[in-house]
Design a protein around this nucleic acid. Sequence first.
DNA 1: GAATAATGGTTGCGAGTGCAACTAACAAGA
DNA 2: TCTTGTTAGTTGCACTCGCAACCATTATTC
Lengths: 149, 149
Amino acid sequence: MTKCASFDLQDFMPYLLNQAAEATSRAFSSTYRTKYGMLQTEWRVLFHLGRYGDLTAKEICDRASLHKAKVSRAVHALIDKHYLTRATRSDDRRHEVLSLTQQGRDVFDDLHQKAQSYEAALLQDFDHAEIAKMRTILIRIAELDQGRD
Amino acid sequence: MTKCASFDLQDFMPYLLNQAAEATSRAFSSTYRTKYGMLQTEWRVLFHLGRYGDLTAKEICDRASLHKAKVSRAVHALIDKHYLTRATRSDDRRHEVLSLTQQGRDVFDDLHQKAQSYEAALLQDFDHAEIAKMRTILIRIAELDQGRD
DNA sequence: GAATAATGGTTGCGAGTGCAACTAACAAGA
DNA sequence: TCTTGTTAGTTGCACTCGCAACCATTATTC
C-alpha cells in the first residue's frame, strides 16, 4: 500500500544493478588483479583481442562502450606488460592494429577459463530459463545507453 | 557448438551487469548532477536519510554497502550544500546523527519522485513478473559480497 | 584506574577517471 | 593546393576514489 507512494532503494533498478555489478566485478577482479596486475579496462581489452582477434583501439571502444582515453591507457599498460603489440596500418596510418603476443594469449586463455568457471559458480543456484531471460533484459537495458558520444 | 568451449563477453554476467548498471546510473545521474551538483554517493546518502529518517554515517555505510571514507566526504558535501545537519549524540559522542534540513527534504522529494518516474520509464517494456524475478536474483547476487570488510 | 582494544569518523596520498584540448593523418571542396 | 573538416589516438588537468594511517571517544581487561 505505502509501496505505491514511496519505494525503497532496493526497488530502484539502477541501484540494484550497481550493487550486483560491483559485487561480481569486485569478486572477479581479484583474479586478474592479483595474478597479472591488470585493471578492469585492461582485462576487457585483452578479452576483446583474445576472443575476436586483432582490432584497433577504436573498434574496441565501439564494441566495449569504453572511452578512447581509457582504452589508450589500457593499451599502453598491456604493451608494457608485453601482452600485446601494435602495428600502424599501412593504408591508413591513423589506425593502430593491436595483436596479442604469445604471452598475452596465454594470459587470456587462463583468464577466459577462469571467467567461465566464475560465471558457472555464480549462477549455479539459479534457474537457467530465468538467467536467460535476465540476460536479454540486461542487454536491452545496456543498449539504452549506446546512442551517446 | 563453439559456444560450449568459448563464450562471448556478452555472456559474462559481471560484464553484462556493469554495462547495464553504467547505462542506467549514467542516465539518472544527470538528474541529480545537473540540477543539484550532487555525486552518486551524495544522492545515496540523501536517499537513505529521506527514506529512512535520521541515521549516523555508520548506519548508512552498513545499509548502503559504502566505505566510510566515501560517506564521510558525501556528508561534508551535503552539509556544505545545506541539505543536512548533524548533531553529536550525547550518550556516545563518537556518533554523529545526520538529519535532513527542510531544503534537503525538498531536494529528496524532488529526486525521489524523479527516480520513480525513471524506474517506470526504464521498465515499461518489460513483463512485471520477469522484473520481479530479476530483482530477487540481483539482490541475491549483490548479497554475495556482503561478507567483506 | 591504567593499559589496551575497539568503534565512529576524518584526512593525506597515490592511483584511476573523465573531459577537453591537442597532434597526426586522411578526406572533401573550392 | 589550400582550407576546412573528420577521425584515431594521446596527454594534461582537475576531480574522485580506495586504502591506510590517524584522532577522539568509549569498552574491556587486568
